[in-house]
């Protein structure tokens, strides 16, 4: 029971930090706007396949930027403080929860901007929104754990990209394959692929809970 309270408190702390120093939130927002605007300048109305590819690649970069700071912002002294008041599992679960929320929000915002600027070839709206939420969630989970590794290695976000891209390719390929079906009414969404992505997400959560205690010790 106390574990839930710990997670909730740590989650609330991250949320409050975000609300008080809003520069990071607006920073990411500006990043999304600028990227989409550059794409709009480069190509006005891309066809469905290009639109889909661009959308997921942009999601990937947004995710790296949004999630990277989650562990890097914690100083050594503060980590020590968390170590004394909460377990590593609660800590990583709170981070996963917070980053999922952040990334889901950012995915939705970028979807809105994408359809405003680059046209909207999506024919099955609700399904695609669901897919975007799922995709944002999957990306945030994987990159949260990699951010923890990068922070422990005392490296910047560049190493996160090196570590993360090969691991995320299969999930990204599945997501693109799924979202290719929403551009046409006649296609149905393959259910097995959907289940596979969800299973991979739970695998990531499980691995983070098992492996984070080893990273945490210093």
């Amino acid at each position: 029971m106390s574990s839930f309270r710990h997670i909730y408190t740590l989650f609330k702390k991250d949320l409050l930090l975000e609300l008080r120093q809003q520069y990071s939130f607006y920073g990411i927002l500006l990043y999304i706007c600028a990227t989409v605007f550059v794409l709009y300048m480069a190509m006005q109305e891309p066809e469905a396949k290009v639109w889909n590819g661009l959308f997921w690649i942009i999601q990937l970069f947004i995710c790296i930027n949004a999630v990277a700071k989650s562990f890097l912002q914690e100083s050594r002294g503060r980590m020590l403080y968390f170590y004394s008041i909460a377990g590593p599992r609660d800590f990583v679960l709170a981070k996963l929860l917070f980053n999922s929320l952040l990334m889901v929000l950012m995915s939705l915002l970028s979807l809105i901007l994408f359809s405003l600027f680059l046209g909207n070839p999506v024919q099955k709206g609700p399904q695609f929104i669901g897919l975007v939420l799922l995709g944002g969630w999957s990306l945030s989970l994987v990159f949260t754990f990699l951010a923890a590794i990068a922070a422990k290695a005392q490296q910047n976000a560049a190493i996160m990209a090196i570590l993360g891209f090969p691991i995320i390719i299969p999930q990204l390929m599945l997501l693109m394959k799924l979202s290719n079906t929403v551009f046409n009414y006649s296609n149905s969404i393959p259910f097995v692929t959907l289940l596979l992505i969800i299973a991979l997400d739970f695998l990531v959560i499980l691995l983070s809970v098992i492996l984070f205690p080893f990273l945490w010790k210093d």
Binding site: I167, P170, L207, L211
Partner: peptide, 12 residues
């Protein structure tokens, strides 16, 4: 750290 990455990457 590299052992943690090795396990994570292999399992994924």
């Amino acid at each position: 750290i590299s052992a943690v990455y090795n396990i994570f990457a292999y399992a994924m």
